[in-house]
Design a binder for these strands. Structure first.
Lengths: 246, 246
DNA sequence: AGAAATTTGTTCGTATGTATA
DNA sequence: TTATACATACGAACAAATTTC
């Protein structure tokens, strides 16, 4: 029976200990934790229990274990997020449609922020990716530079949550359902259409023109099956708002 | 030396084993894993190593361990996401501004989907939350029903990624920076303003009117400092598009 | 209801590979 | 090179919770 008193499992003490150290700013990225034996003594648990807790923290990217050296605070969140998306995808029976909706949500907001915060360096990166996309000869290349453009745009938003979420999402898409991006790109009726879509997106970023950038994103997602019909319908409704004021 | 041959750590075998079982649909949520001793024998590692791997999987929400019973496939992703947001927040020095931007991205997209997919049950839930908000007397209550309205709206989107991300985000906000939601709500210049904002949001959902729903969301976020100024500026630019057609 | 079997939770001891001064 | 500190890994044992008979 559970009496309400928290009789936490031993390894939880480790997780809490580390989280507390981080939250209270006593440890930061790169810092080394006490040795496992010391932790075991301090927390009054066995070394094996300490290790179970440390292993969990390593998996979720907060820790990095180096044999012979020690356990260090780290920030490797991308992989975990990707893994979680993958598990959710299978276990919760999520559709590709939902992935696309999530991706759109991130890109839409990222574009708003990117036009305000993009710096010259990012502009050059995105310019070059676009040039490469134009010169791309194989589908393989097109996939790569398509991805680079979108990722750079999100990076330019300078919002760590958007960036990490987006990276995890695309990593998962490329890894688990690799066919998806291929199908999307192959679905473009011509190379020119793909370029036109990205031209708007890139121009929006470089000229700081939000409307053009959003047009590019909308165009890109309009090609994705099913979602296309839905979003066109939505946008007309949004745009009707100001008309009433005319 | 590392010879390039991957001499992975022992516990990785467990993580890979479980992930493979899930990916190949050999196991689904609720299923029980082989006993730890059996796994140890099958994977040719010690039980301690098996446990390290299992612990990691438990922490990231894929597993649930029950003493005396076994290890079961689970789907407890919310807590992990929350923890990761918390770690990112501290370790990457993320601002409240970025949290708000992320939250807005989710709500904005969720509203688009919610008006299309909301069912009668969710409508009733959101109606009642709104009534409770109107009758709320303490700030405590207002915080609770404010949260219920927004959460129900996101739930109505029926997108698991949006739902999980949003829940993690609000859990984190309430837990770590509890002052935030309070400040936002207290920032509303009057109770009426708070209600008017939510009235639009709720009406949009119930009547399936996207424009009204989006107005509600925009209104809500417009009160959040700094982001407010930015977003008003943005919206005028968006809304200028159709005007040109007039 | 109760006893036995099963399974996870936890600990200790020991041996080995690795990094560092 | 050597010595020390540290993580990695294994096996055995017992405790505690659950399931099974």
């Amino acid at each position: 029976m559970d009496h309400g008193e928290k009789e936490q499992k031993s390894y939880h003490k480790v997780v809490e200990y580390v989280n507390r150290q981080i939250r209270d700013r006593k440890m930061k990225a790169g810092d080394r934790l006490p040795a496992e034996r010391e932790l075991a003594e301090e927390l009054n648990i066995s070394r094996n229990s300490v290790r179970e807790g440390l292993r969990a923290l390593e998996i979720i990217g907060i820790l990095e274990s180096r044999q012979g050296s020690g356990n260090y605070i780290a920030m490797n969140f991308d992989g975990v997020m990707t893994g979680m998306l993958a598990s959710m995808y299978v276990l919760k029976g999520i559709t590709e449609n939902q992935l696309t909706e999530y991706r759109f949500a991130i890109e839409w907001e990222a574009m708003h922020l990117a036009v305000l915060r993009v710096d010259e360096e990012k502009k050059e990166v995105i310019r070059e990716a676009f040039r490469n996309l134009q010169d791309a000869k194989t589908e393989e290349e097109r996939v790569r530079y398509d991805r680079a453009i979108h990722q750079t745009m999100v990076d330019a938003s300078q919002n760590e949550f958007l960036i990490t979420s987006y990276r995890a999402l695309t990593d998962f898409m490329d890894g688990y359902i690799r066919s998806m991006r291929r199908r999307i790109i192959a679905g473009m009726q011509s190379k020119n259409q793909l370029e036109e879509t990205h031209r708007l997106l890139v121009e929006g970023i470089i000229r700081g023109d939000l409307a053009t950038g959003l047009q590019g994103i909308r165009g890109h997602f309009d090609y994705i099956e099913q979602y296309k019909d839905f979003h066109m319908e939505v946008e007309t409704e949004i745009n009707r708002l100001p008309e009433e004021k005319c």
